[in-house]
Computed example of a mutant assay.
Amino acid sequence: MFRKQKTFLVLTCLLLVSLIAAACGSESGQQGAQGEAAGEQPKEEFLIGIIPAQGSSQMKEGADKLAELLEKKLQRPVRAEIYPDYNGVVEAMGAGKAHMAYLGPLTYVEAHERYDVEAIVTQLIDGKPFYYSYLIAPADSPYHSFEDVEEHAVDIRFAFGDISSTSGSLIPGIALKEKGLFQSQQDHQFKSVVYTGDHTATALAIQNGLQDVGAIDSAFYNNLVKQGTVDGDKIKTIWQSEELFQYPWAVTKDVTDEEIKLIREAMLGTEDPDILSAFGGASGFTEASNEDYAAIRQAAIKDNRLKPKQ
């Protein structure tokens, strides 16, 4: 009798243990299912749009490394995409496809006007947030100054960069318009006018004698020479503009203040040579704001690219 009671107690205990284990397993399974469900909703990709200022192949490695840097900082997927032209980046921001963009100053003021994007960071060149528009010519060219360009315009094949470029189009275009040399690609005093699309293409066109005078970004030009992409001994600078505030990194309205803080921390702290070299041979990054581009905004209004606010 005692042995039967003992056996019954043992079986009861085993049954209770089984029930408890089953209950715990069920709860764990529910938690796991909830975790999997949460895992099926990853954070939205953060896209960085980049203008092809230096040509996409030269910028890709630095852009990809920047994306990796920001992905760690923001704790969300980040991808950088180099667009085929300047305006495409602006439209991507307006359509909500790009959250952040590397823009030329002119492209930025247009994007700010249309889509209310905000500049947050810019690069430093030799420690300063400025660059210039250059006019360059082959080293053996008979043209040595802006006055020479004015005097011999009818013989000159002139090259701008992208039509939306500040240093490759807007600023030199205004200088040429003031002398009555240029109004548009169809209305000018030159032998011919072309838009190469980016600064690398302009520099190579001048070096190889395909164009006689070209408008280019000073920082990108100097970096192309430093990298050996073009031979500085085969090119000379014949004109320099006043100081221009450097290219901004801008964000759309849906980027939070906390994300802006993290982006600034990451970029201002980086010393990666591939990242710095990809963006005009920068020596570093610094904070930027919309107010830094007031002079470019006025130039864009002067050139009828923006309408003054009423």
Rank of each mutant, 00 (worst) to 15 (best):
8 F>D: 11
11 L>D: 05
12 T>H: 06
19 L>W: 00
19 L>D: 03
19 L>S: 00
21 A>D: 03
26 S>T: 15
29 G>M: 06
31 Q>R: 08
31 Q>E: 15
31 Q>D: 07
32 G>I: 15
32 G>R: 13
35 G>P: 11
36 E>P: 07
36 E>M: 12
38 A>T: 09
43 K>Q: 14
44 E>S: 13
45 E>V: 15
47 L>T: 14
56 S>P: 09
58 Q>I: 12
67 A>D: 04
82 I>W: 00
88 G>P: 11
89 V>H: 08
91 E>R: 10
92 A>K: 04
93 M>Q: 04
95 A>S: 04
96 G>E: 01
98 A>R: 02
98 A>Q: 08
98 A>G: 09
100 M>K: 07
101 A>L: 02
104 G>C: 08
105 P>G: 09
107 T>S: 14
110 E>Q: 14
110 E>N: 12
111 A>P: 07
113 E>F: 11
123 Q>Y: 14
124 L>A: 00
125 I>P: 10
126 D>E: 14
128 K>H: 13
131 Y>V: 11
148 D>F: 05
153 A>H: 03
154 V>S: 12
154 V>G: 12
155 D>T: 05
161 G>I: 09
161 G>S: 09
162 D>C: 07
162 D>T: 09
169 S>A: 13
171 I>P: 02
172 P>M: 00
175 A>L: 09
180 G>E: 04
181 L>S: 01
183 Q>G: 13
183 Q>A: 11
183 Q>D: 12
189 Q>C: 10
189 Q>Y: 11
190 F>R: 01
195 Y>W: 09
198 D>G: 03
202 T>M: 06
207 Q>Y: 01
212 D>I: 08
215 A>H: 11
220 F>N: 13
220 F>I: 15
220 F>D: 14
221 Y>V: 10
227 Q>I: 10
229 T>H: 08
230 V>Q: 01
232 G>I: 04
233 D>A: 14
239 W>T: 01
241 S>I: 12
242 E>Y: 14
244 L>I: 15
245 F>M: 07
251 V>R: 01
255 V>F: 05
255 V>I: 07
256 T>H: 04
258 E>M: 12
265 E>T: 10
270 T>E: 07
275 I>H: 05
277 S>D: 01
280 G>A: 07
281 G>W: 02
284 G>L: 05
285 F>Q: 09
285 F>K: 09
290 N>A: 12
291 E>F: 06
291 E>G: 05
294 A>L: 13
296 I>H: 03
298 Q>S: 13
308 P>L: 10
308 P>Y: 11
310 Q>P: 15
